[in-house]
Amino acid sequence: MPMRLDRACAVLEGHCTVEEAHDLAEWLVTGRAREANLAACAGLHAAVLQCLMALAPQIVARPADPALGLWLDAALPAPVPLPPEAPPQKAARAPRRRRKAAAAT
């Protein structure tokens, strides 16, 4: 399973294929305060990347693969790390703000 959708965090592992994009998008659209953990992600299909770009979940962990990390950095706004005792509201606000900013430009 390259992707696990937990309650608040999408965990992408291994090579995320085009099939995953649909589930991920659906999952990101249906709720806010979503996070994505790419620590174990070794490859992303462009469709999956698009989901991350358009729906802007908070990236809580960058891929371990540095090359892939560079691509993500190029495509995504800078990840906002959570302080250790992260109040949940803060996590909810970050993506929303970003989306608004995209609409304004």
Binding site: D6, A8, E35, I59, V60, G69, D73, P79, P84
Partner: peptide, 23 residues
């Protein structure tokens, strides 16, 4: 991006528990 990434990478212990209990 790099700074932020550095912080994230610096505190891997934080990243994991965030995902942990909510699973």
């Amino acid at each position: 991006a790099d700074d932020a990434a550095a912080v994230v990478a610096d505190t891997p212990g934080d990243a994991a528990p965030i995902a942990g209990p909510s699973r």
